[in-house]
Design a protein around this nucleic acid. Sequence first.
RNA 1: UCCGGCGUAGCUCAACGGUAGAGCGGGUGGCUGUUAACCACUAGGUUACAGGUUCGAGUCCUGUCGCCGGAGCCA
Length: 435
Amino acid sequence: MYVLIKDLPQHIGQEVTLRGWLYNKRGHKKLRFLILRDGTGLCQAVCFRPDLDEAAWNAADQATQETSLEVTGVVNPVDEEHHAPGGVELAVGSVRLVQVPADDYPITPKEHGVDFLMRNRHLWLRSQRQWHLIRLRNEVIFALRKFYYDRGFVCFDSPILTGAIGESAGSLFELEYFDLGSAYLAQTGQLYQEAAIMAHRNTFCFGPTFRAEKSKTRKHLTEFWMLEAEMAYCSHDESLQLQEDMVVYVVRWCLEQCGDALAEVGRDLAPLERAAEGRFERLLYRDAVKLLQKKGSDIQFGEDLGAPEETILGAEFDRPVFVCNYPRAVKAFYMKRNPDDPETVLCADLIATEDHGEIIGGSAREDDIDLLMERIAQEGLPAESYEWYLDLRRYGSVPHAGFGLGLERLVKYVGGLPHIREACCFPRMMEKLYP
RNA sequence: UCCGGCGUAGCUCAACGGUAGAGCGGGUGGCUGUUAACCACUAGGUUACAGGUUCGAGUCCUGUCGCCGGAGCCA
């Protein structure tokens, strides 16, 4: 009977067959411990020579790291002191090799450098830490989709190939598009979400986005997944509440569902448990500048927050913090002018704790067509390209708001990861296109 | 793009300007309960590349390439 390792505790005393790969091997003359991996977990398979026929023993002997194989044996419980993974082990009766690698498996049970591991990302994925991180990412994705589905949001996927539209033209991947000149890989799906909500009220898109910026930091990818939510008849404050609820929901979900993964990567749970309580501070940009100056930063009103400022703020609060209402000049043209403080716009960035930095950026959108056209002109953007976008203000414009969440940044934060590359399946960075 | 750092065995790293080494992985042998198993033996090198200084360069200098970290930009 073929069984998955995760289901072994339900088969104690039975003879089962595991199909997987050899993760590691230890042994004596008459006793071999095969650590098997089958994609659902790890299992120790014990080969005791007198219990195996010659062929099976030789097979166990020949299996090297990452040999694919089938192992049949009886499932036994394991006492505390031997602590095998999963609390069970397999008393092996027979072994069948599927494929034995001709060359040594490159990733050994010792330490490796980042460059080497990234070049072997396709194999690195099999390692325990990476396996758990992809599981964590999977749970974050599921929690996000469930959060929006439960609230009646419609998944409306924005196009990935676009004309020259977006926040800025300096960081777009450009490609030839038949006879229509250049197309660009989308940097954001937001403008399309604004069209979508006029049809569906509340929508989100969740897909890859592309930034051609030559960033070399632990927070940047050139290809990353972004969830962008947009809500019609929604105030800025209501948007902030939704963002907070979303982060709280995901963090709680992961605390409940991903204990193994969080333990595997050594995540300090205390900051997550505080975040799971909600009550994120909403700090005005004006106050943030004063606070930062008090903490030794030489930031002036009117300047955007840089990485050092994010670090200070991340350390100042014990849970994620919203920085609200930035000066108009440093933010995108579509953000709504703050009626109470016209120098600023109604927007917010969510800064995570422990130097994980910005994980959400959002705003109320300018719904007044005249103000919007004024801003498009100020930014020197090609007005023709935005005609359809302006139509959204011409035909039943309503107050609305939305935000974008960086998936890998959220996974990095939840997992407490030192670098964003581990939050992504095959990270794309400036110097990384292989594998 | 800018600033800083690094490049030595398949991998991770040592080596004062003076004979290139260890651990892991591989191979051979030993061991009936291992936990990144252990013990013994063994193979494995154009010290990133190109110049230069020096009696002598892995080490110092110049250039190129590659990578890492940070900045800007952002999620």
